[in-house]
């Protein structure tokens, strides 16, 4: 997985870079937008780590233009502002996720992996979360070496939770993903699927507790390295 870090503070860029290399990423550095453009033109990147305050322009504006021209990969924005409304502005401009400074390398790595798990990302074929492995082409799921025997909706749910591992997936999003618009959803349908999936995970690898319930909101699959 190749990542381009666009950050003008040399120490932050280098420290983030070496941290991500240690986490298994291939990393290139760009100190400003001009060199970022040059790097994107000469090689293909899976993701971008973008600082907003750059010497030759505003990172958000650059991202917005790049998104329109479809030339930039998924972007994780780093912001020193941390203001509540910056988040909305950033996501509108085409940032896929954001982190406020100071950040931890583990967090950056986790967010980048989450970006790369999104549908359409290049590394889409196999999802890996802890002991769980999901082959999206063959729709086969493995817990360790054991293959899980999942019904269609259980597999759909697991794929959704694995793609969004580490974040809460709302119940409404699950219903939308699992059921077509006209199919009636009984009130406890999602709960039933979750509890069957949890039991199967428990039987296969004792990892049913990775699947957390956030009562009244949705579900979360714990991310483990």
């Amino acid at each position: 997985m190749r990542v381009l870090i666009v950050e003008d503070n040399e120490r932050i860029a280098k420290l983030t870079g070496s941290g991500l290399v240690a986490a298994g990423f291939a990393v290139d550095l760009a100190p400003d937008l001009a060199s970022a453009d040059a790097a994107l033109g000469s090689a293909s990147f899976d993701a971008l780590v973008l600082d907003l305050g750059l010497p030759d322009g505003d990172g958000l504006e650059w991202l917005r233009r790049g998104r329109r021209a479809r030339t930039v990969p998924p972007a994780l924005v780093l912001t020193a502002r941390g203001a509540l409304d910056d988040r909305v502005a950033g996501l509108d401009a085409g940032a896929d996720d954001y982190l406020t400074k100071p950040f931890e390398i583990d967090e950056v790595a986790a967010r980048l992996r989450a970006l790369l798990r999104r549908p359409g990302a290049r590394t889409d074929v196999e999802l890996v979360i802890g002991p769980l492995r999901f082959d999206t082409n063959r729709r086969a799921c493995f817990a360790g070496e054991k293959r899980l025997d999942l019904a269609r909706r259980e597999a759909d749910l697991l794929e959704l939770l694995m793609r969004k591992a580490g974040t809460v997936v709302r119940r409404q999003a699950i219903e939308d993903a699992l059921y077509s618009f006209d199919a009636p959803v009984t009130p406890n349908a999602v709960e039933a699927i979750v509890s069957r999936l949890r039991r199967k995970l428990d039987q296969a690898c004792g990892c049913g507790e990775m699947l957390h319930t956030v009562r009244g909101v949705g579900y979360l699959l714990e991310e483990r390295a």
Binding site: I12, K101, P102
Partner: peptide, 9 residues
Amino acid sequence: RTPLSVLAL
């Protein structure tokens, strides 16, 4: 935030 980021890293 910037010096704190360097320190944290």
